[in-house]
Amino acid sequence: MARYTVDEFINKTSQKDKGEGLFELETDRLLEVNLNGMIWTKMGSMVAYNGGIKFEREGMLEHGLEKFLKKAITGEGAHLMKAVGNGKLYLADEGKKVIILNLENDSIIVNGNDLLAFEPSLNYDIKMMRRVSSMMAGGMFNVKLEGTGMVAITSHYEPLTLVVTPERPVMTDPNATVAWSGNLMPDLRTDITFKTILGRGSGESFQMEFRGSGFVVVQPYEEVYFQTTTSG
């Protein structure tokens, strides 16, 4: 029997319906959306689709004046687009692993760079950590999602979830932090010493400190955030 034929390749890699509903993992790094209506997606994340689907960029006042002002003041924001219609939509982000979460009257905060898609039934708000933007190259913003609905987030490689308790706070590298439970309010810890100024410090000068009860998701990769600009 011949190996590595075109038919064998097509059979191995062809799309397969799993019947899991709106969001399903076509592969570990590719999200399939069985669209019948509208969802929010990260701009530039569409890799393929079929059916009658249209894409619309998020309007300036799409989520209200308050969020528009936050974006204008911070220079940051989740660059979103609407996918509207009926069909199958395939989303990915730089080959990162896709994680699907079904929120049930719950909330989660996601690093804005790691938000892939979410249902319009979820409310979202931009959260800026105090002092982070001025201390990290390119700044950092987070998106709080709350309510009932599905959200897809991404992680470089396999994520690790750490449980936070009042007795055991968790410290993380901001560049490796993907998401955390919506009830937690992390603080930024700084460890700048004379050695740091001379370039002889540990290199871990900034950490996010999580206290309370909840969880935090980290990835085995430190992302570098670049300031982005968009033309009006």
Rank of each mutant, 00 (worst) to 15 (best):
K70Y: 03
I53S: 05
Y157G: 05
Y124R: 02
G95Q: 11
L162N: 04
G51R: 01
T74Q: 07
P220H: 08
N123I: 13
R200S: 04
Y124A: 01
K54F: 05
T228G: 00
N183R: 12
T74I: 00
M60H: 04
L30A: 09
Y49K: 06
V143S: 04
A152W: 07
V151E: 08
T229S: 04
G44R: 09
T154W: 08
E58M: 03
Q207R: 15
G199V: 07
E62L: 02
V178I: 12
V216M: 03
G64A: 03
V110R: 07
K144W: 02
V217F: 03
E76H: 02
K144N: 15
V224Y: 08
N142A: 06
V47R: 10
P220G: 05
E167M: 05
K88C: 02
W40P: 02
M1L: 07
R189H: 00
P159S: 13
M135L: 15
T165P: 04
G232F: 08
M46L: 15
D93A: 11
I108M: 13
D125A: 08
L188Y: 09
L65N: 01
H63T: 05
S181K: 06
E119G: 06
P166T: 02
M129N: 10
V110W: 06
F9D: 06
K144Y: 02
G149R: 15
A179M: 01
D191I: 08
L122T: 09
G75M: 10
E24M: 12
E32A: 14
L162Y: 00
K88L: 10
I192P: 11
G87M: 03
R130I: 15
D173C: 05
L35K: 14
A83H: 02
H156G: 08
T74N: 07
A137V: 11
P166N: 03
R189T: 02
D106M: 10
F141Y: 05
L198H: 13
H156R: 14
F55C: 00
P120V: 10
F23N: 09
V163N: 13
F118H: 12
K97A: 10
A48S: 08
L35P: 09
F141H: 13
F141Q: 01
T193Q: 12
D106G: 07
E62Q: 14
N86T: 11
K195M: 15
